[in-house]
């Protein structure tokens, strides 16, 4: 594995399988009375969040603490975009604190890449979501969740031949980018569904199919992932009204009825109920949305453990 996790494009199939297999071992911990492992004792993990995301921050924090790492939460006010503290100055501060890993969330695409490659810090860098670029650990937890439900009986985590449909604002979605690359690496067939205005230029060169017609693709899907669609996109002219969007691209009870029996429904959160997904679908038996959150901690434990070079086996030697 590379030193940093900046993009799911950095992960070979072996890397991805190793992370998912490690996460599966660590996931067992969640069901035990003592949830803590000594694997990263004495190591410092900094959660550097330039953007508010309590969910992601808490998930990383829980992951690091269960591995006995010291955790520093650093909520940087604004970014150099808003003339707040600059990325560079913040990075130099973290370096002085002796951070072993920096988990960074930033509103600017590429900010984690800058952090990793500018020479400002020596730490391992984990991208916890950058602008409209990528969110690799979200894709890993999504893949992990899919493998648990759809992964078959093979020894290795695999999504070979599985059909995943990702629906919504692909253009602005870091989750969609990371998922498209990772799921392809794991053998899944990915279809992106969106109005043409919300598909990126050049999407035809991605390792995915695309469609403008949700009804045509979901009956064959094994997993349907709904992306958040922000209402502000209307003023950008990306679609006319929320009502028209929901009618054409929302997942409601009627559409859910056309899914195969085993098909799961996913959402990276936070959901806009009534926009891309109706409440009855979000709360249905098919929905694995709550499970995604649980799996998030296990996957992030695996990533931190593997990046920080835990030489001991992850599980075993419990306190």
């Amino acid at each position: 594995m590379k030193r940093h996790l900046l993009s799911t494009a950095d992960l070979s199939r072996d890397d991805a399988e190793l992370i998912l297999a490690t996460a599966a071992e660590l996931r067992e911990l969640a069901d035990r009375p003592i949830k803590k492992l000594p694997a990263l004792r004495g190591r410092t993990v900094v959660n550097l969040f330039f953007e508010d995301s309590t969910r992601t921050r808490i998930s990383f924090e829980a992951a690091a603490k269960r591995l006995s790492a010291d955790v520093i939460n650093f909520a940087a006010k604004g970014s150099s975009l808003s003339k707040g503290e600059s990325l560079k100055d913040t990075a130099l501060t973290l370096e002085a604190m002796g951070a072993d890993a920096v988990v960074v969330r930033h509103g600017a695409s590429g900010a984690p890449h800058r952090l990793a490659h500018s020479g400002w810090v020596r730490s391992n860098v984990v991208n916890a979501g950058d602008g409209t670029h990528e969110h690799p650990t979200q894709a890993l937890l999504d893949a992990f969740t899919m493998v648990r439900h759809l992964g078959g009986s093979g020894a290795k985590p695999s999504l070979d031949g599985r059909r995943v449909v990702i629906v919504g604002d692909v253009l602005h979605s870091r989750v969609a980018r990371s998922n498209a690359l990772l799921l392809n690496t794991l053998g899944a067939e990915v279809t992106l569904v969106a109005p043409p205005t919300l598909l990126p230029v050049g999407v035809e060169s991605w390792p995915v199919e695309t469609s403008y017609d949700l009804d045509a693709v979901i009956p064959k899907a094994d997993a349907v992932m709904m992306l958040r669609v922000q209402r502000e996109r209307m003023s950008g002219g990306f679609f006319p009204t929320a009502r028209e969007y929901s009618r054409r691209y929302g997942l409601d009870g009627r559409r859910m009825a056309t899914l195969q029996d085993h098909t799961i429904v996913m959402h990276p959160g936070p959901m806009v109920r009534g926009m891309e997904i109706t409440a009855d679908v979000a709360d249905s038996d098919r929905s694995v949305i709550v499970e995604q959150v649980t799996n998030g901690v296990a996957v992030r434990m695996a990533v931190l453990y593997l990046l920080l070079g835990g030489s001991e086996p992850a599980v075993g030697g419990e306190e």
């Binding site: 590429g110 602008g131 409209t132 050049g202």
Partner: peptide
């Protein structure tokens, strides 16, 4: 530049 790369990098084209 708007193109395949801007879409991939998540930088506005």
């Amino acid at each position: 530049n708007e193109g395949e790369l801007s879409g991939r990098l998540g930088l506005a084209g």
